[in-house]
Design a protein around this nucleic acid. Structure first.
Length: 510
RNA sequence: GGCCCGUUGGUCAAGGGGUCUAAGACACCGGCCUUUCACGCCGGUAACGGGGGUUCGAAUCCCCCACGGGUCGCCA
């Protein structure tokens, strides 16, 4: 893979074609449009850019492509930044942190684009177009109907100066279109796809400057990528078909074309582009549901990139070490929630308990299982609970499911079958004996609990399930859960006795 | 519809002419551990889209077809 090298200058000058320096610095960018929360696909693009940059000790730039004023918002920008930070993707240059190539919001760079538009206009490589949006839309529809390629037909291509003035006197505000050369074949050497070719005849003259003077995406990216001296463009496959337009622009402006790499899309379970109907799509949602950032990062990295060995668990640091565009897959990947859950569960099992407790608190509060303020004792209790249920969790959201039984006053039977376990023949004896052995103790550790259980089994001459299952149900209402002796130890004598007593009442009632 | 990209088990994927009677992971199934569940450990089922070439030999190279996806905006 060739790593382009650029001269770094501090003025806002784009390097002319062929202008190199020996110094090798990788400069990549993540350039989202702040029109919504950071999407899983965007997060993966950002991650790949980050890994690539850090692997080569390069620079990651965060730039906001906010030229769509209708849909852009500061709120979305905030969400994107927060999500990136949460994932551990730190940018070296750009929004908030600054840098020598700013500003990093396109709407703050308007005057920079003007110069380049002028340049094209002067050279006749771009022209003014006065067609109304409505006309063009209708025309597009007509062409679609007739199964023709829906593209601009070039009506204003050869307007004279006089004609332009006349139209402007009528009050028409022009857009600027780029004159696409005819009959050329453009070649791009994509770092993940290899050689890809396009014919310019398939591209209509496209708009580079809107009637309100704001540049469109294709134009702004080219100018910015050049001015910011981006060496590698790593982005989603949906941009592959924009590449020829950008190539043309780089060429017309006399700017050096960065290397490009298009990574495949992330699909939903039905193999169509991932969208809301496939479930959660934003990073923020996964965060909220109790996925750990390192798990999401690990999972996203594996979605489209394959490590060399057989290991699949990687920290961010290890990903940086091992990442390579050579091992990025060309084919789209289905987002497999099951695997994410597995990876997340893995990290949950490895996490320090304090961290898990902190993450569990909001979920339990929301479910009304714990209060706003926790006393030291409550916190202590919660810690023990988390400790014994953590192995069941695939995300922290599930804590409510497994921890519920430890926080409610009276037990709830899971189902009739569970209740039925209490109605068996010698259950009263078991419960009574248990109560007698536990009552009055300040606390019981799990070893003691274990031997108490053994004693009961021995003294009543009852084996196996006859002791364990009724007690489990009496204490939790559930047929499954953490090991009985641990459960008893966590619950503590007082709570255990109270629950057993309640259970006995139930038994008597039948 | 045009253009572009893709196609190895249910999913992510390794592989890049012979070592492929095709790796690994998730999921699934079975067993062990455990008088429950989970975790953990062990094992199993399961794949080169189809057709033509090239070659002594093709999952790997070429062509065609099929299917999937992307894109054709004063969105990015």
């Amino acid at each position: 893979m060739s790593l382009g090298s650029y001269k770094i200058n501090l003025k806002n000058e784009a390097p002319e074609e062929g202008e190199f320096l020996m110094k090798k610095e990788i400069r990549v960018r993540f350039a989202p449009s702040p029109t919504g929360p950071l999407h899983i696909g965007g997060a993966r693009s950002a991650l790949f850019n980050y890994l690539f940059a850090k692997h080569f000790n390069g620079t990651l730039i965060l730039r906001m492509e906010d030229t769509d004023q209708e849909r852009s918002s500061r709120e979305a920008e905030e969400n994107i930044k927060q999500s990136l930070k949460w994932l551990g993707i730190e940018w070296d240059e750009g929004i908030d942190v600054g840098g020598d190539f700013g500003p990093y919001r396109q709407m703050e760079r308007l005057n920079l684009y003007r110069k380049y538009v002028e340049r094209l206009l002067e050279k006749g490589k771009a022209y003014k177009c006065y067609c109304s949006e409505e006309d063009l839309k209708a025309e597009r529809e007509r062409m679609k109907q007739r199964n023709e390629m829906p593209r601009y037909t070039g009506r204003c291509r050869d307007l004279t100066e006089e004609q332009c003035l006349a139209l402007e006197r009528e009050g028409k505000r022009p857009v600027i279109r780029f004159r696409v050369p005819e009959g050329r074949i453009l070649t791009v050497n994509d770092l993940v796809r290899g050689k890809v070719q396009f014919e310019t005849d398939g591209i209509g003259d496209f708009i580079i400057l809107r009637s309100d003077g704001i540049p469109t995406y294709n134009f702004a990216v080219v100018v910015d990528d050049a001015l910011m001296q981006i060496t590698h463009i790593i982005r989603g496959e949906e941009h592959l078909s924009n590449t020829p337009r950008q190539l043309l622009l780089f060429e017309a402006l006399g700017l050096k074309v960065p290397e490009v790499a298009h990574i495949s899309l992330i699909l939903g379970k039905d193999r169509s582009k991932m969208s809301k109907r496939h479930g959660s799509t934003s990073v923020a949602e996964y965060r909220k549901r109790g996925y750990l950032p390192e798990a999401l990062v690990n999972f996203l990295a594996l979605l489209g990139w394959a490590p060399e060995g057989e290991e699949e668990i990687f920290s961010l640091e290890e990903l940086i070490q091992n990442f390579s565009l050579n091992r990025v897959s060309k084919s789209p990947a289905v987002f497999d929630l099951e695997k994410l859950k597995w990876i997340n569960g893995y990290y949950i099992r490895k996490s320090p308990i304090e961290r898990l407790v902190a993450l569990a608190v909001p979920h339990l509060q929301q479910a009304g299982l714990i209060g706003e303020e926790l006393s030291a004792a409550e916190r202590d209790y919660l810690t023990k609970v988390v400790e014994i249920v953590r192995s069941n969790l695939s995300c922290m959201e599930e804590i409510n499911l497994y921890a519920r039984q430890f926080f409610i006053d009276s037990i709830e039977f899971e189902d009739e079958k569970a209740k039925g376990l209490l109605m068996q023949e010698r259950v009263p004896e078991v419960l009574e004996l248990f109560q007698r052995k536990v009552e009055g103790a300040d606390e019981i550790n799990s070893r003691e609990a274990k031997s108490i259980l053994k004693e009961i089994s021995k003294e009543l001459n009852l084996g196996g399930k006859k002791v364990f299952m009724p007690l489990r149900v009496a204490l939790t209402g559930q047929k499954h859960g953490p090991e009985l002796h641990e459960l008893i130890s966590v619950l503590g004598p007082a709570r255990a006795v109270q629950r057993v007593r309640n259970a006995m009442k139930q038994v008597r009632k039948g």
